[in-house]
Design a protein around this nucleic acid. Structure first.
Lengths: 125, 125
DNA sequence: ATTATATATGAACATATGCTCAGATATTAA
DNA sequence: TTAATATCTGAGCATATGTTCATATATAAT
């Protein structure tokens, strides 16, 4: 019978002896991003990690669209689109202009497009 | 009392009349990615959308690390790390080499790093 | 003012996700 | 071959996520 680190309680106690290469762990720690920056980075990727939101972003790369057009294009409810647009708005990825009762959404800048283009290049290799 | 498209059943029936700019919807449809490509793109972003996986990727940018080192660095269980590494392996983002019982993980190429660098630039502006 | 259109929002619900735990596998050493 | 180390894997569970439904808000027209 061998003892391994299984539960987190044990893990905490024996943490030290489980580090094989302490200098690498220390190195990683010293080069790690600040927690807020890590979160912002992850949140950016989270925005693109859902096909509905990703499709919205990709569609807006070709010009502004209103909510009901996006809903028709994506074949989801306008409510669903609206919820996702709010998330993208909060992340400063999209913005809108009002023309009467219609809100036209567009990308805030081309940063997201640069990223999707770059990733698509890699995927298509 | 006004009637609006609320439930998806109604939506399907009246889909046409909810499209304000049919040409934009058609345009978006014609420029849309193929479903498989859209999924691959979303899956790539999904891989980076979790702080544990993102931290693994960022750590490996500075050199290879074994599972227990990553666990120590991330302060999560080795099992959790192993599960996430499997996902990253399946997405061809990381690979490993075995030296005795120890598996050293590294990035497959610098594509991911290009992406994280690009996004970090934008975030830091 | 009332009605209609377009969108937003909150709650509920079902699914997806990430971690833990327990046990399995692979490699090495005694 | 027995034991130890390092990692992997599957099931269970708690939380996160995305959609729907119902309703609210904003603007415009009658």
């Amino acid at each position: 019978m061998c003892f391994r680190v299984v539960c987190m309680a044990d893990y905490e106690d024996r943490c030290q002896c489980r580090i094989i290469h302490e200098e690498r762990v220390d190195g990683a720690r010293s080069k790690a991003l600040a927690p807020e920056e890590l979160d912002r980075l992850a949140n950016f990727f989270k925005a693109l990690a859902d096909t509905t939101r990703l499709s919205i972003i990709l569609a807006l790369q070709h010009g502004e669209m209103c909510v009901c057009d996006l809903a028709a294009f994506l074949a989801v409810s306008e409510s669903a689109v609206s919820h996702q647009l709010r998330l993208l708005r909060q992340l400063q990825l999209v913005t809108n202009r009002r023309q009467g009762p219609v809100l036209y959404y567009r990308l805030v800048d081309d940063h997201v497009s640069q990223v999707t283009d770059l990733v698509l290049e890699h995927i298509r290799e």
